Simulated scan of single mutants.
Amino acid sequence: MKTLSGKRILIVDDEPDVTELISYKLAREGCEVEVLNDPLQVIGTAREFRPDLFILDIMMPELDGLKVCRLIRADRELKSVPVIFLTARGEVENRIEGLEQGGDDYIAKPFDTKELILRIGSVLKRSGPGTEKEKERLVSGSIVLDEELHQVSVAGKEVELTATEFKLLKLLMQRKGRVLTRENLLVNVWNYDTNTETRTIDTHIRRLREKLAGDSNPIETVRGVGYRFIAN
């Protein structure tokens, strides 16, 4: 049974050869795929297509992938849909920039289609709903994480988190008071092996801190080790 069967993927890239290849591979996995070579059509198409995940190229004319991602995150209907950036700009600074703009993952061109499919599966797995047994409501100080509603609030005000940020905060709150290494977070949140770039963690932690700023930054850095959620 194909793990991606039935998933709806919207691919946005101005290179038809790239979109054709990805579309073909995902269709073989049982996905329903929509392709756009014009980034200006993304929001309208996405509202109709209702994708489970976006694949965005960054370097596109008129509207680059980073701006498209910001539009997605600002849209009430699309803001929680995960985004994977697929781009020729593979330097560390570019990856960090993509994650800071709300991306959930970042793959550099040229890419291996098998890796891309595995990354898509990983992102969809952590963004999907849990089973009834797994659903929790975690409270620490003014922070409330409700897994059933997939909602986080600080002092009664809802905070918008990406799927990855939500899972990261959930893990930190579940193990509050305990130090979690970057490698531990990569394995449990990203399902990656420990050879993956750990700066990915630092970028997401920084974004999470900014969004939880109303609670005096409960995520503590343990220098040279990792991070800890401070119990309130």
Results as ranks from 00 to 15, higher is better:
Leu40Asp: 06
Glu77Val: 11
Arg89Gly: 00
Gly65Tyr: 01
Thr45Met: 04
Lys2Met: 11
Leu21Gln: 09
Ala108Thr: 11
Ile84Asp: 10
Asp17Phe: 12
Ala88Gly: 15
Ile107Met: 13
Ser80Ala: 07
Leu78Thr: 05
Glu34Lys: 13
Gly103Phe: 02
Arg137Asn: 08
Lys2Ile: 04
Thr87Ile: 07
Arg89Ser: 09
Ala46Met: 03
Asp38Cys: 12
Lys125Gln: 11
Thr19Leu: 02
Leu63Gln: 10
Met1Cys: 09
Leu53Asn: 12
Ile43Lys: 01
Glu100Lys: 14
Pro39Glu: 12
Arg95Tyr: 05
Thr45Arg: 14
Leu118Val: 14
Val33Gln: 01
Asp105His: 04
Leu63Ser: 08
Lys67Arg: 14
Thr131Arg: 03
Ile9Ala: 12
Ile22Arg: 04
Val81Cys: 10
Gly121Phe: 04
Gly98Ser: 06
Ile11Leu: 15
Pro61Ser: 08
Arg28Cys: 11
Arg126Glu: 06
Gly44Leu: 02
Gln101Trp: 07
Arg47Thr: 03
Glu115Arg: 05
Glu29Cys: 09
Leu40Lys: 14
Asp38Gln: 11
Glu100His: 11
Gly128Arg: 05
Asn37Met: 08
Lys135Trp: 07
Gly6Met: 06
Glu134Trp: 01
Lys2Arg: 10
Gly103Met: 01
Ile11Asn: 13
Gly102Asp: 06
Ile107Lys: 01
Lys109Ala: 01
Val68Thr: 09
Ile58Gln: 06
Ile43Gln: 00
Gly30His: 05
Glu48Met: 10
Gly103Val: 02
Leu86Phe: 10
Val123Thr: 12
Glu115Pro: 02
Leu21Phe: 13
Tyr106Ser: 00
Glu77Gln: 12
Gly128Ile: 02
Ile11Cys: 14
Ser23Met: 06
Pro61Val: 02
Asp13Ala: 04
Pro82Cys: 13
Glu29Pro: 09
Asp64Glu: 00
Glu29Phe: 01
Leu118Pro: 01
Arg8Phe: 00
Thr113Asp: 10
Met60Phe: 05
